[in-house]
């Protein structure tokens, strides 16, 4: 089984320290971990550090995953590409990074068909990248990540540009595939209700360090929201039994006109 844990992990860009002393419990295969926290708290940097794209102190312990970018896939936040490639070609491109021969096998193409159909972008297959909307680009990026069949996925706000229905669809799909393939999925999310719905665990990053981690219901509490986000809110069960963050109105230290 795949395992991932962090032990005193830090990261810096030059002299600017972004992360320090991030430690986590051991995350195991099939778990979806929501990484939450305010903007610029260091979530993206944490992902890059885990993927080995930035250096720093501490230890990223990984068991049961292929080394390097084949086993651990980092999906960066939305970026606009002007490359003259079709969506299909760009997903194939992600797939072929690990086996850089010119020939493309039928298996590769079958997998790409499946991935694209599963997140509902089959009809975009032969559109060019520069013709896509922000949300479509995000779906393509998810398809690229899935096409690489990693053991650990690090997804940086993968649903930030998606409409509500697509968010549910994509997060539900990611959760299913994590369970089906025994992957560890870390997803940076801003919507705590989505975290409560789709994640097994939560890792709270604030001011460059881990403030809390554990099962969603233990971590996402009124107290955490007050301390980390400075928002007065409560977490309650709805009639269906699911937990929701409810903001009653007043922000803790912010005058809202």
């Amino acid at each position: 089984m795949v395992k991932l844990s962090l032990e005193g992990v830090g990261a810096a860009y030059g002299a600017r320290r972004i992360l320090s002393d991030v430690s986590t419990p051991v995350f195991k295969g099939s778990e979806v971990i929501a990484v939450v926290g305010p903007n610029a708290a260091g979530k993206s940097t944490l992902f890059k550090r885990i993927a080995g794209l930035v250096d720093g102190p501490g230890e990223v312990r990984i068991e049961g995953a292929r080394r390097g970018m084949d086993g651990i896939c980092y999906m960066p936040q939305d970026s606009v590409a002007t490359a003259r490639l079709t969506v299909y070609e760009s997903v194939l491109l992600a797939r072929k990074q690990r086996q850089p021969t010119w020939t493309v096998h039928e298996d590769d193409l079958a997998l790409i068909d499946t991935v694209m159909a599963s997140i509902g972008i089959g009809e975009l297959a032969f559109r060019h990248l520069d013709e896509l909307s922000g949300g479509q680009r995000q779906l393509v990026s998810i398809a690229q990540t899935l096409a690489r069949e990693p053991e650990i996925m690090l997804m940086d706000e993968p649903t930030s540009a998606l409409d509500m229905r697509r968010q549910f669809q994509v997060l539900g799909f990611i959760r299913n595939i994590a369970k089906a393939r025994g992957m560890i999925v870390l997803i940076a999310l801003h919507d705590l209700n989505q975290a409560l719905r789709f994640a097994d665990q939560v890792l709270v990053i604030a001011d460059g360090t881990a403030r809390a981690s554990g099962p969603c219901e233990d971590v996402i509490t009124g107290q955490m929201l007050r301390e980390v986000y400075r928002i007065e809110a409560r977490v309650e069960r709805c009639s269906m039994g699911a937990r929701h963050v409810i903001v009653d109105g007043a922000l803790h230290d912010l005058a809202v006109a």
């Binding site: 299909y88 079958a110 068909d113 499946t114 694209m116 299913n176 089906a180 393939r181």
Partner: peptide, 9 residues
């Protein structure tokens, strides 16, 4: 994961 596959290939 069983999913409908369209044949783009």
């Amino acid at each position: 994961v069983s999913l409908p596959t369209t044949v783009e290939r």
